[in-house]
Each structure stands twice: as structure tokens, then as C-alpha cells.
Amino acid sequence: MLKVSEIDAGYGFLQVLWGVSLEVHEGEFVALVGPNGAGKSTTLRTIAGLIEPMAGEISINGDPIGGMPANLVIKEKGISYISESLNLFSDMSVEENLLLGAYTIRDKAQQKESLAFVYDLFHRLAERKSQLAGTLSGGERKMLAIARGIMSNPDLLLVDEPSLGLAPNLTHDVFQALLKLRDQGVTILLVEQNVNTTLHITDRGYVIEKGQIIMEGASKKLLNNKHVQAAYLGI
């Protein structure tokens, strides 16, 4: 469903991505891994429409979306992006954050349905409905960001390092939640540092280094790759 071909992107004069291509098929759970500063987040930001690509093309189900502003990418293309820094609305309550997640859905009943769904997925959030997002714990903030991301009922979810800064048991919870979403039919592109776990739960993976995709393949295969083992798994 998502096809990224040969994109160059960056910040101002600084080019970060050099001809990145990748593809995510309907219902797939795909990982994008690589060292710090490789351009993983930049790739997701470009797909989400927060950065305009300098060259190349991004398309969803065949329609090009490169250069489309972020608000339209989510609204018209059903792509939801959960960023590294979460970008929560800290002075608003949990529920308000969630309702904003459903900003593109004008149907009140559908909003309610989404709300019930995410509260069911994250019980913690249901308990803390009226707490300000800024006062949540790190783990709760992560959950809120993911929950807000799926409020719009996306077809494709771009998730940037959901495990960053979380204790192992919470990381586990977050991954379980992603798997659950996958089972519901949501397509996911996941960026992770936690390469081992990621490659165990995803279907396919891409390895990006210095702004270029250097490897791609089934996750199991990547796990056995020499380079991946040496560089990311410490074997």
C-alpha cells in the first residue's frame, strides 16, 4: 500500500536521505532499523508529510503523496504518525488529546467508538481520562501518543521508537499493543532501536545506514545476517 521510491530529503541545506526506497504491503508489519542519526525519523517524517522530499516519490495505493502537507496525509490517506517526541498537547487532558486524535472524523458516534476501542486497549488511559497529558508518566505518555495515533482509525501507522526510555515490561506492553493492532488489520511501519525484539515480531525489515537503505528482507533472515548480528545484536 505504501511505496517510497528513491527519495532524497533533509533539513534546509542538509540532506539526510539519499535515494531511500521502501515498500509496505497491506496488513504487513515492517521494521526500519539503523544506527542513531541514520535518518529513520527523517524517513517517517517525510512520509507523514512534515518534510517535503527534495526528490523521489511517495505513493499510497498508487496515488502520489509526496509534498502533501501532513494534515492532508492523515485526513485523506489514512496515515497516522506517532513521533519520537510524541508531540502531545501537554496542557490538555488525556481525553481531549484523544478527541483531537479523531479530529479528522466528524462523526460523533464513530469518535465514541474509537475512544472506547483505545480505552479498552490501554486501561491506564481510561483511569486517567481527565489528567493533563503533561503530568503523565513517560510510559503513560507513550501509550497516549499511540492511542491518539489510532483514534483516527488509520490504515497505516508509522511508529517512531515507541520503546525509547521505557522499562522492559512497559516495552513489552507497547509491542503487545502494536501486535494487537496488526491483528486488527492495521498496517504498521515501525522504527526501533530495540532491533532484536523488533525483528522477532515484525514480518519484514529494512536496514538504513547513513541515509541509505543497505539491506532488506524477511525479519527472520535479517536476524541471521552477519552484518546485522555484528552491528545491532552484539553477537
Binding site: A70, F89, S90, D91, L100
Partner: peptide, 14 residues
């Protein structure tokens, strides 16, 4: 006013 990028991410037209 609280997070411009966040607002764009949920589909708000700045």
C-alpha cells in the same frame, strides 16, 4: 498553541 507539529499530525490545517 501547545504543539504545532502535534496539531499537524492529528490532521489540523495550520
Amino acid at each position: 498553541s501547545q504543539d504545532e507539529t502535534g496539531a499537524q499530525m492529528v490532521g489540523i490545517d495550520l
